[in-house]
Amino acid sequence: MLKNYLRLNLSLLYWVFVAPFTGQFFSISQIFRQMVFIGVRATSMVALTAFSIGVTLAMQAAHSLQQMGAEIYVPDLVMLSILREMGPVLIAVIVIGRSGSAVAAELGTMKVSEEIEALEVMAINPVQYLVVPRFLAMLIMLPALTIFGNYIGVLGGWAVCRFALNFNTAGYIMRALESAETWDLYSGMIKSGVFAWIVITIACNAGLHVEGGAEGVGQATTASVVQALLAMLVTNAILTGIFFFGA
């Protein structure tokens, strides 16, 4: 299992970074097709999630901070939590559930119906033809969705501050921007890039190694979601440790 996963990663690195220089270029149109599927079609779900998170964070923060008369810090808390943790993690959760599972199921079905074998026999490498476009699409779209989700999350915080606490819009924006540094954004972006790698390689690996018909596809899809979630959350803890606790 782990051996297959490492082999997939190596072969992926070869097809992304080495093969294009030997004239075997991957297809750009396929990447855009996958970007629409993985990214664009997930925007509404990401927006709803991020907005709810922003609202929840603001309400919880307001509840605690009001007791100390420090509601002024609500925007700080919303902004930092979303940029550093909630944004990258929860949007990765959405993408795992929606796009990761779909990729595992799609590749798994292709494996079961001999399509992968047919590609190999046509001298088309399945990693180059199927995995590389999905990988690059995910690597672009997950951070992009995270930026988008960050905006919506902060908007959710604003909604609470503006309508339930006595903030004005300018005050909220000023406070939020003042609290955050660029590193808060960048650390989140690095995280979501790493998550993108984890999610798509686990999904593709699960799909490409399906055995045993429709039942196998189901099992591989479930396994890919569980493994990707666990790997993503553990990696998140490690990265938070390195970024904010180590130095």
């Binding site: 119906s113 001999e114 399509e115 074998e117 046509m122 490498n125």
Partner: peptide, 23 residues
């Protein structure tokens, strides 16, 4: 793998199920 790919370009194969790409 690379050498096999170059041989495979010279033959065609029809699978039992057709094995067309569904997408």
């Amino acid at each position: 793998e690379h050498e096999i790919a170059s041989v495979r370009r010279r033959f065609g194969m029809l699978f039992q199920s057709g094995a067309l790409l569904a997408s």
